[in-house]
């Protein structure tokens, strides 16, 4: 984590003085489950992109382009929203990845 400002450098009143600051915060540590996306199954309907509360679904040229894992909290909404006939997402325990 970068060095935090002293009280003299901070905006007063407990505010966050500008917009868009959540982008700077890495919340990957909040995840219990990680969405694993299968690009082979994906039909690029982008329902997950619309529904993701953290805007963590990346797109390129109107197509699914992966997941921003610094901001994905693992809520699983993407997997829920994925059409039943497609099921491009699987939610896996984060610990499985840490094992190596």
């Amino acid at each position: 984590m970068s060095k935090l400002p002293s009280w003299k450098e901070m905006a007063s009143g407990g505010i966050i003085p500008k917009g868009g600051t959540s982008h700077e915060k890495d919340v990957s540590g909040w995840r219990t489950y990680r969405p694993v996306h299968d690009m082979q199954k994906c039909i690029h309907c982008l329902r997950c992109w619309i529904m993701c509360p953290e805007s963590a679904i990346l797109t390129k040229d109107g197509k699914h382009a992966g997941i921003d894992f610094a901001h994905c909290k693992g809520c699983g909404i993407c997997a829920q929203q994925c059409p039943k006939k497609v099921q491009a997402y699987t939610m896996k325990l984060e610990s499985e990845f840490k094992k190596g």
């Binding site: 901070m10 905006a11 009143g13 407990g14 505010i15 966050i16 917009g19």
Partner: peptide, 13 residues
Amino acid sequence: NPYTFGPLDLPEW
């Protein structure tokens, strides 16, 4: 000039 008023102020702030 947008800013956030009344956010959660955790132990580091």
